[in-house]
Design a protein around this nucleic acid. Sequence first.
DNA 1: GTTATGACCCAAA
DNA 2: GTTTGGGCCATAA
Length: 108
Amino acid sequence: MEIPRNFLQARILNQVRRIPRGRVATYGQIAALAGHPRNARQVGAVLRALPPDSDVPWHRVINAAGQISQRGGGTGEQIQQALLESEGVWFDEQRNRIDLSVFQWKSP
DNA sequence: GTTATGACCCAAA
DNA sequence: GTTTGGGCCATAA
């Protein structure tokens, strides 16, 4: 039977919800967990379209460089960093970067 | 139907 | 360690 296209979006959101508190995941990681390793960009596209009242922990998704992806003119980056710090994720003082070897979520 | 864009990733230089 | 270029594919116009 046919699979709806927006099912990919549901898969992605489902994986983002699995990220434990105090951990982070990369876009590529989420895409791979959703079964589409080449669709890292779509993860970002889905997160951008999220409503503010969503229960999805979008702030726990960062890029492979361990940094918050810049969205061009938005203030969401600062909110994201504040949320992560409130969960115990610390940024490197000089690089503004998260140590993925410590904080990256290891999916079972 | 085509073209442009993007909260990305990776290998090579 | 950093910078560059190519690729990938869903969404919007």
